[in-house]
Computed example of a mutant assay.
Amino acid sequence: MVTNAISAALTCVGPGDGFEVRRVLRRKPAAGEIEVAVAAASVNPIDVRRAQGYGRRLLSLVGAGRFPMVLGNDVAGTVSAVGNNAGAFKIGDLVFGVKPPSVEGTHASHVLVKAAHMLSAPRGWDLQALAALPYSFVTMWLAVRDAGLTRQNAAGKKVLIHGAAGGLGTLALQMLSRWGSQVTAIARPPDFAACRQAGAAEVVDSSVKPFATLSRAFDATLNFAAWEDDLSLLGCLRGGALGHATTVHPLLANFDELGWLRGALKTFSDKRSHRAALPKGTQNYAWTAFRPDAAALQELRQSVEHQRDGLSIGLRTPLASAGQAFDHVRSRQRGRALILPE
């Protein structure tokens, strides 16, 4: 690696204060790390919210709460430097993967990542398009597992997915239908066809009181849409169900809005009241949060190697125009938004 080499980084200046492309010194990879020359990094809804200050209090515990910060949790590109004990990766390898929440995220021309959180890019895939998958896939897989579903037990299970047309929902439809589950999707009418194509056996209109038409018949429910609907989803579980997981819980917001003590008490109260609403014998209830996970990454590896799952790309924009990508996600436009350093 060239001494004093420079990276361009999309820097979020402060809560709601917008972005600047800043030049920063590239550091040598530490043991277990590789440096990736970024081909693309995706913008996820959590990035849009963190740019406004969301989650600062709790994320400060892992060094991810201070401004200015570089956002982004998934990436695809080319290995440009390798630290000691970084596995089999070598300079020039094409890779994709994830990075935990930090203030040195993947919205940059070069990024340091743990080798254990990266996968080799398979032949036949658009390298940029691979950047849209890791964060969403890992988060989805964790939620599916938290709800009690596995490859071994999913066949024949009735699963209800709220927010089925989003990134997490689409990937869950693809994976669970492949595992043999009978999946019902809650989505808007313009997204019905896409949900069926992704694997939904049935689609319910989210705009006309969807829970009024659903009975307590489901083995598992997944909430990728709205915390306000969580109790309604619990009401769709049968007695003795596998369980429920939500990725739209108020954990970070509770601490942001109420501070450490009251935030902890509110979180405990929210979880207790929702657990109390579970049908008798339900085994699992979870608030799922993203984190790199070896088993999830292995499932992602198998998925892309067999060209099974994917997400459509709605926007590709250079680093200097990255605000467009954030606007794309904020306004919930179709397809994933990618930032390209060049």
Rank of each mutant, 00 (worst) to 15 (best):
I6K: 08
C12N: 13
V13D: 06
V13F: 06
G14P: 03
P15K: 02
G18C: 03
G18L: 03
L25D: 05
A30K: 04
A30M: 05
E35R: 00
S42Y: 01
R50Y: 01
Y54I: 07
R56P: 09
S60E: 08
L61G: 10
R66Q: 09
N73F: 01
T78Q: 06
N85V: 01
I91L: 02
F96H: 12
G97T: 02
K99G: 05
P101Y: 07
S102K: 04
H110R: 02
V111N: 04
K114P: 00
G124F: 05
W125N: 03
A132M: 09
L133F: 12
G148P: 13
T150G: 13
T150K: 06
Q152C: 09
K158C: 03
V159W: 13
H162F: 03
H162G: 06
A164Q: 09
A165G: 09
A165S: 15
A165I: 05
L168H: 14
L171C: 14
A172G: 15
L173V: 05
W179L: 09
V183A: 11
A185P: 13
I186V: 15
A187Q: 10
A194H: 06
C195N: 11
R196H: 15
R196C: 13
Q197N: 14
A201N: 08
A212P: 15
S215D: 15
D219T: 02
A220W: 02
L222D: 06
E228N: 06
D230Q: 01
G235D: 11
L237S: 07
R238L: 07
G239F: 01
G239C: 03
G240N: 12
N254A: 12
A264H: 08
K266W: 11
K266C: 11
F268R: 13
S273H: 05
R275D: 09
R275A: 11
W287Q: 08
A289Y: 09
E299Y: 12
R301C: 12
S303L: 04
R308A: 12
I313F: 10
R316K: 13
P318N: 06
L319N: 11
S321F: 09
S321H: 14
Q324G: 06
A325G: 13
H328Y: 14
S331L: 11
L340D: 10
P341A: 01
